[in-house]
Design a protein around this nucleic acid. Structure first.
Lengths: 243, 243
DNA sequence: GGACAATCGATTGTCGACAATTCTATCCAC
DNA sequence: GTGGATAGAATTGTCGACAATCGATTGTCC
């Protein structure tokens, strides 16, 4: 079978990987098992499987060149993680997150990232600040180049870096998990007109606040930013619905 | 095998159960599979297995009267959930959460419950308020009777009711998950001298704030309460360490 | 034509057997 | 004794076969 926990620093907490919280790259065994979970996960998150698409064990086994046993283990894991939905005797399918749930997820994200920003403010180093500003510059370039996908990736990088600075593995893992579930919604917000410019400004304010070392300022800046994201998402969904 | 997702209202999100967020009791099939996961989970959370204790598949299969396949599925699930740690070819053991991690978990809880309280304030009904006050009275009685365990259970009930009122399934599920991981630490805070009285006062303030319908007030009251819990836990751990 | 029952194919669930790996105890050299 | 190799036991990992279940299709009766 194949679904291990592999220790990541001190925290084996709710294995999800994707990010290295304290900077160490999670070395994983070359074994088929673990990476199978990763591969399946990646396929789902990247959208290579559609939402609600059935995941037939035998097919997956053939496609991924693995045994059914291993596939089943990966599916159980993904089910527990929320990316896949399994029903008794009826198999697994890619879980579809509803609009409502996407909003809830985003709200949780606000709460967690607020807290992470608060901690980051007390631990940030001048080097970190410089690196964040570097990312900001790249983001500006992408906006000017009219490249929303590249911008979005840098946006993720920006936030993930703050998570790492905060040094709160539990919260960082949770927020990363949530993100992979609602990833399908991110473009709805970024593509809103006028959003990139405003978003850039907000990110700059976040860096300033963190650089000041004041936890309250960091928390506030992050909340201001993310609650606007929530608002934008709400509008985008409403528009999409009415349409 | 046996590790299904069973829909809970709208949310299949990160199945954990334990609480009914919207009031509906999670009906589960009488099948062996699902309840096996529950049983194992309960056994771990209740402390019938010690932290770090090895969980040998064959033994568990005998004890629970199930096949090894089913046990393995449950273990994979519990691993993903963070209650169990599995290592390749070396089996599973009950995960030991460190002091540091317990603190992190508690901090996440603060962030999430703050948000939940905020939402609860906007949705609470007079009936809810009355019910919460009822719980408060019972709690008072337990304190006077010198019954910390009963108090602790009511405390959980109190908070869970607020989660339900908030109507945020994602956040509620996460917070419930976290709690089951750090349950071993809860007594450290409750048994601190003078803590029960102060705790009672704080809970009363929370109800008042929620009853006022003001989100900010609800959030603030909850934060005040929980950050004190964090502080208490910090001290308890420090004392325990030095000892 | 529509409701209902029976059948069949596809898929999941479970078990047992065996391979692979790790752990433990023993033995031996020094 | 101590360290290190070695054999054996214990345990996990994987596979294949078969039972159980579900969904769809077909057939039947009214």
């Amino acid at each position: 079978m194949a679904a291990y926990s592999y220790p990541r620093g001190e925290f084996g907490f709710m294995k999800t990987a994707l990010i290295e919280v304290e900077g160490q790259a999670a070395e994983e065994p070359a074994r088929g098992g673990v990476s199978l979970y990763r591969k399946l996960r990646e396929a789902i998150v990247d959208g290579r499987f559609q939402p609600n698409e059935r995941l037939v064990e035998a097919d997956l086994a053939r496609v991924f060149g693995a045994g059914r046993t291993a596939i089943r283990a990966a599916l159980v894991r993904l089910d527990q993680e929320g990316l896949v939905e399994r029903q008794p005797n009826r198999g697994a399918r890619v879980r579809l997150v509803s609009d409502r749930e996407a909003l809830e997820i985003e709200e949780v994200r606000v709460a967690l990232e607020q807290m992470l920003a608060r901690h980051a403010a007390t631990r940030i180093t001048p080097g970190d600040v410089a690196e964040l500003r570097g990312i900001l510059e790249e983001m500006t370039a992408r906006v000017e180049a009219g490249d929303p996908i590249g911008y979005s990736e840098l946006n993720s990088k920006f936030h993930e870096m703050i998570w790492a600075i905060a040094g709160q593995g539990v919260a960082a893992t949770l927020v990363a998990n949530l993100k992979s579930q609602s990833i399908r919604f991110q473009y709805r917000t970024i593509l809103q007109p006028g959003r990139p410019d405003r978003s850039l400004r907000e990110h700059r304010l976040i860096v300033d606040a963190l650089a000041s070392g004041d936890p309250d300022a960091g928390e506030t800046a992050m909340r201001d930013h993310l609650s606007r994201v929530v608002e934008t998402l709400k509008q985008a969904i409403a528009r999409h619905r009415g349409y």
